[in-house]
Design a protein around this nucleic acid. Sequence first.
DNA 1: ATGGTAGGCTCCCTA
Length: 258
Amino acid sequence: MKIATWNVNSIRTRLPHLQAWLTASKPDVALLQELKCTAEEFPIAALQGAGYEATVLGQKTWNGVAILTRQDAPKPQLTADHLNLPDNPLDARYIEGQVGDWRFASVYVPNGQSLDSEKFSYKLRFLKALEERLCTLMASELPVVVGGDFNIAPAADDVYAPSRFGDDVLYALPVRQAWRRLINQGWIDGLRLQHPHQQLFTWWDYRGNAWPAGHGCRIDHLLLSPTAANRLRAAGVDSDQRALEQPSDHAPVWVELA
DNA sequence: ATGGTAGGCTCCCTA
């Protein structure tokens, strides 16, 4: 079973790449972020043509998350479409569904903009609400995969120049501490477990020639519950997606589970 | 230290 996560940065703009990637990569489950469209605008027919069904949480202009599953598999039963955040429940940033014994979630954590901004405190509040939801999922003892754009580079190996990232919203101490609180619940970082020493990036800024310069960060993750992690056989990043014309600034990340 | 590009949408915001 292959599970992937990909921040597509507009599913309508990225549709040709997404279709080709689904056909070539054949994930059983694809967790998508930054759809930037409503559920009505979601290009469902094109994805059905590629052999997939979609469970969509859309929003005009911003955010938007989805769970793609193969047409020959049952569609997920929706188990959550938001986190318990009293102040900003309208952002389409979290969707979760059950397929058989398995639970899958697609999450798009706020970027945070800058450390002194209101958006950064929102990011920390969102991560707190995510921590609470993941605690419930961990206690369920189900096999769970939580994938998404966490907007967190967990460690120095996960940014191209750690000395420049001390007060970056992707790497600042409170953000790495929030990551640590998730991991300490017992979640396994699938890509890092499979590649303990290799520097692997999943996002390269559109600005500043970041892709050709190799200036990336690892901010997209697949968190595995213990029973899911026991089945981990392979993991990787489809970084060739970032080299295409009109790419997303993120590359797909995947795990293969026995 | 600053600004760079992309996407969606509207004279600008988010990333």
